[in-house]
């Protein structure tokens, strides 16, 4: 009656339970830490937008769904956001090699384009409202306003970070600090662009 005795590994009584424990990663640097933090923040945001999309997909099978004619402004928005993201990428690369002037220019372009994106979104919303397609008119509209609205809110939050980045630049900080904060902004922007493209794709392909 000793079938449970672990005969295969007589020396298994070790202090370290495993040799595959993985290596200690070493002390983290501040900039790396912030980037990790941002990436982890993207987890709940991805979850949120993902769930929104799955709710959209479930809801659109109900009988009362009437596809929303997308206002042409959202195409403009898409273009603006792509360019804004590109602006941040420009700034990010410039920051890596320490071209502070280019960083400044990139940031300015990216921020203005992001504001233009918001304006374009606002235009689209007004257009819909005036066409009698208000938020409660049909679930397709409700989802359109909810998705684009939440996305815009996150962009507004991003613009706060953008302002802070400009402040860092104005404060003539050391290159590492500039590099870090610009990098964070750029990553966040790329994420928001990805979210927008996903939302946009859903709205266009699954109307």
């Amino acid at each position: 009656m000793s079938f449970w005795v672990d005969r295969g590994h007589p020396g298994r009584g070790t202090i370290e339970p495993s040799r595959t424990a993985g290596r200690w990663p070493g002390p983290a640097e501040r900039s790396k830490l912030a980037l990790r933090g941002l990436l982890i923040l993207l987890v709940p945001l991805t979850s949120m937008f993902g769930l929104l999309i799955s709710a959209y997909i479930m809801r659109r099978h109900m009988g009362d769904w009437q596809p929303l004619p997308l206002p042409w402004q959202v195409w403009l928005s898409t273009l603006l956001l792509v360019l804004s993201s590109a602006g941040f990428e420009w700034a990010r690369r410039a920051a890596q090699v320490g071209w502070v002037d280019d960083v400044r220019r990139g940031l300015l372009v990216a921020g203005v384009l992001a504001l233009a994106f918001l304006a374009s979104q606002f235009w689209a919303w007004r257009e819909l409202q005036q066409a009698g397609l208000a938020v409660a008119t049909n679930p397709a509209n409700s989802f359109f306003f909810l998705m684009t609205g939440l996305h815009a809110l996150h962009l507004v939050a991003g613009l706060m970070a953008w302002l802070r980045t400009r402040a860092v630049l104005a404060g003539r900080q050391e290159p590492a600090a500039i590099q870090s904060t610009v990098q964070l902004c750029a990553w966040y922007w790329h994420f928001l662009l990805a979210v927008w493209l996903a939302l946009f794709g859903v709205l266009v392909l699954m109307a």
Binding site: E16, T20, A21, W24, P25, A28, K32, G37, I40
Partner: peptide
């Protein structure tokens, strides 16, 4: 919590410890 566990462990503190 997640970032701290992933990034701020002291020397020798592997995940499996």
């Amino acid at each position: 919590y997640v970032t701290t566990v992933l990034q701020a462990r002291t020397r020798g503190m592997t995940l499996m410890r």
